[in-house]
Design a binder for these strands. Structure first.
Lengths: 198, 198, 198, 198
DNA sequence: TATGAATGAGACTTCATTCAT
DNA sequence: TATGAATGAAGTCTCATTCAT
């Protein structure tokens, strides 16, 4: 289990270790993300790493946690928008934000997320789904008139949408298809969401 | 592959090595799929493994190749159906077949596919997409009247559908959500396809 | 111990195995001269190799034996020359012959000899020395008037000359010095021999 | 070298690893000088070896470097002698020193050097030649009157002398000929040098 | 005799983790 | 708390040799 740092200095150190881990994974791939390389990147000794993380697994967990947190933040940012918006606009904006986040820092987080299976990223997905579900529910409730009467199983539909969009996005960003442009992809997703929910 | 097995006996051996690899990955996870464990599973010596595969990577490749082949076969089987069918029925049948295949042998192939990112399964996806694209194109051309005039970018849409469905399926089968049943999931996918293409 | 082939066909096979070994060593280096590569080169099975050689060591021994034989032949060819010659001419001619032999077939034998230490080539040297000693003794006896009265320890001197020349030659051919040309080197050796013996 | 040892303790460890490597090569031959045997000899774990050397090759290189260094030191020691000396005396003394060095510690370094070809000792020879060339040049310049007018190509001659002497010495020490004594050999070498240079 | 698939000891190397300083 | 040298289990792969066919 991960130790919870109490002092400010330690907290910063933990942050920079997590940062470094993401950087190293992005730069050299997960297989080459050794404790030595990570601590080199931070400029601390291996021993110090183990001061804050019991083992590498915990470290990876922390990295994923942070990514999920950031994704959640993006979703929340959207949900807090005060302006009125169509669902399509909402999705487009959100996806662009997510895309930019994944491509930021030379694909730093993208590289990390690509290894989700090894990293048990799927457990992080649960939180995301939860968030999407609640945010979209709120949104849809606010616009009752526009809800299609036969939307069917809303949770199931949201489950499918969230997973479909996120995984396809990941796959596309890490290996774009020449058949599809970013714009088209996002537009199609927006379409898909509207068709699914309205 | 290092050596092309000429005799029947060798061909069977290669098959059983690939089988064993899948089994070991499924049982212990990719990280634990060591050459020793694999050859133990077959009951041969490590040396024999290297008679037929240059390295572990090649072995993994062979496993993926086989899975993609089988998935392709399922798609083809559907496409050859002579009976008239609605798109929805077609999708439902195909997805049930795929599902059964992935769950067969205690989720043997499912477990393997879950590690797609490490295994470069994505390259296998290309072949699948190609197949789906051509099969569905043929189908849609046969029913021109039913094609929605504004289907938009068909390749893009198929790209999205194939990826969305396959990855979500994988994720669900490997960790089912209590919110969604298999039946619902497949029904929703069928819906999604119809809404997308018709 | 090496089996002695009795039939003509087998004798030829043994020859071609020895040839192939030299070729493989020259092409890929001693470390890469595996039984598989050697038998591939001959076009026979590994089993057949072991029909004629009990182990790899025996095979190497045979290769060295043959090289020493060929060198001996060169020396003998010189010693049989009927024309009168100066010692210097004799040495020059011999060294040119040896040089050509070592460089023949893309340095086939040179590469083999370079690995003398692993190959226990030194034992082959004994035979060469013996030969040189006897050939030169004969020569010198034939020209008694020209022998310096204080030649000192003739065997010792021949030992030194043989070894000095051969090893330096090997070193030069395998990695020529920019400071010295082939011509100079041979001329200097001829000089050295004359100064030593006359 | 992977890591430059900063602390005295590590420096000593690196030294003892190099020592052990030489010992193991001398005791069991180069082929048997495995990382396991070497670290056993030092009494450390294999991992520790790899803290300081990237691979076995680097380790061998370090061993050779040290030997060449020591040989250079011997040459330098001679060249610094203040007393006047004849070339013959100079060579005799130097060769005796080299001989003693090679035979020290039960032929420790001799055994190592015997494997020069695999060990790329030849590159070490370059340094030695360079040294010999400069040292002898200085000597010869100091005694201009005694230089034979027709010494011819001095660098070539020194190249030949250095190689001839060193390789013949190695061969003799590792397998002495009954025809020659150490004393005779050295005396003959001294002769050879005088005849070559004066 | 010939074949070549099978063997398996053993080589090199990596890297998460520990612990004395 | 921080350091980083040391550990050693475990992984991948090679290759001389055997032996059933």
């Amino acid at each position: 289990m991960r130790k919870i740092p109490k002092q400010e200095r330690s907290r910063l150190l933990v942050e920079s270790i997590i940062d470094a881990t993401a950087i190293v994974i992005a730069k050299h791939g997960l297989a080459a993300a050794t404790t030595a390389r990570i601590t080199d990147e931070v400029g601390i000794s291996i021993g110090s790493l183990y001061q804050y993380f019991d083992n590498k697994e915990d470290l990876y967990e922390a990295v994923l946690e942070r990514i999920v947190e950031k994704l959640i933040t993006l979703v929340e940012k959207q949900s807090l928008t005060k302006e009125p918006f169509t669902l399509s606009v909402w999705v487009t904006t959100l996806l662009n934000d997510v895309w930019d986040f994944l491509e930021a820092d030379n694909g730093l987080y993208l590289q990390v997320v690509r290894n989700w299976s090894q990293l048990d990223f799927v457990s992080g997905m649960d939180v995301l789904e939860q968030k999407m579900l609640s945010v979209l529910s709120v949104y849809l409730l606010q616009q009752p008139t526009r809800i299609s009467p036969n939307t069917g199983d809303l949770p199931a539909r949201l489950y499918i949408l969230t997973n479909s969009i996120l995984f396809t996005l990941l796959r596309y960003i890490s290996k774009p298809s020449p058949l599809v442009s970013r714009q088209t992809l996002i537009a199609e997703f927006a379409n898909m969401v509207e068709r699914s929910l309205l």
